[in-house]
Nucleic acid binder design. Structure first.
Lengths: 156, 156
DNA sequence: TGATATTAAGATAAACGCATCCTTTGTAGC
DNA sequence: GCTACAAAGGATGCGTTTATCTTAATATCA
């Protein structure tokens, strides 16, 4: 409805990483397996998040990906802006190039408050909040058999 | 951010038609010119809206497209469901196939209210409301030079 | 130093959305 | 019926997103 597949992978992957012990690098393969995402494509998404300064990457043995900052400092908005581009929060809902408070499309007045809600939510939700929700066991991060995440809580 | 280009064309075209005298058929070419949309593609979009029972179409001389019902009876939601498919209001924001109140993804609780707002808005906005907004002259339906719509009010 | 494991990077491919073109079919008016 | 007109339908191309494959670079460890 609103986020591209790429963005969905990115968010899922980062939430997963935030559920893992801090400072330990995580393999692309491991993330892909746990999310049920195509590993080769996920690698590209993670690469992109590296360029966006959200991740560190390490090659070779003992390599992997690592969150660049604490999960509480990374918001969904930061992720979305990297994967969807800056137009995400700006574009007119009817696709007009010119649409503003001054020169509004017929949906502008009604749509703006909803857009603000979306922006507010994306800015408020941090990886820590979402990772804790997943680790509590009450919320699912994947469609995979629950076994994959079954012993998550015992790690923390 | 949320609607495909196709859906944007569809909504724009139907609003435009609702600004025209009721019962008179409108040419695809005319609509395309007024919106600045590619006429051959718009034709496909309108065809699709015919199949979705939102429009009548007439071939030959004096042909064109015609709203099937009064503009006050057609909501944006009806349009969006035709052009985006039924998944539009159902799909999980993180892309999970399984995500419901019972088995929620970590965003579900926060996202649901916003989704409800969007659904409510799309269901409330009718073509008549939007067409009147355009005809009042306060709201723009196109990026084209205002001349194209300049004498709209004088028609009604 | 060499073997191995792992990401980076680039090339390729498949699917889809967007757009165009051309031919066919139906309709109205003469 | 003839002709002009307009939508319908099919084929095609282009660009982007999504996905895969192959090779290069790099780090660890024996």
């Amino acid at each position: 409805m609103i986020l591209s597949r790429t963005t969905q992978y990115a968010i899922q992957a980062l939430i997963y990483m935030a559920t893992q012990p801090r400072g330990v690098s995580v393999l692309n393969r491991t993330i892909a397996e746990n999310l049920g995402a195509p590993p080769t494509y996920l690698a590209k998404v993670l690469q992109n998040l590296c360029r966006g300064n959200l991740l560190y990457s390490y090659r070779g043995k003992q390599g992997g990906f690592c969150l660049r900052e604490e999960g509480e400092k990374i918001t969904l908005m930061q992720i979305v802006l990297i994967t969807e581009g800056p137009g995400f929060t700006e574009d007119c809902v009817l696709g007009l190039k010119i649409c503003s408070d001054k020169v509004p499309c017929p949906m502008h007045v009604k749509w703006s408050p909803i857009k603000q809600e979306v922006v507010r939510l994306l800015k408020n939700q941090t990886l820590d909040i979402l990772a804790n929700a997943v680790m509590s066991g009450k919320y699912q991060l994947t469609d995979l058999p629950a076994a994959a995440f079954g012993d998550l809580k015992s790690h923390s």
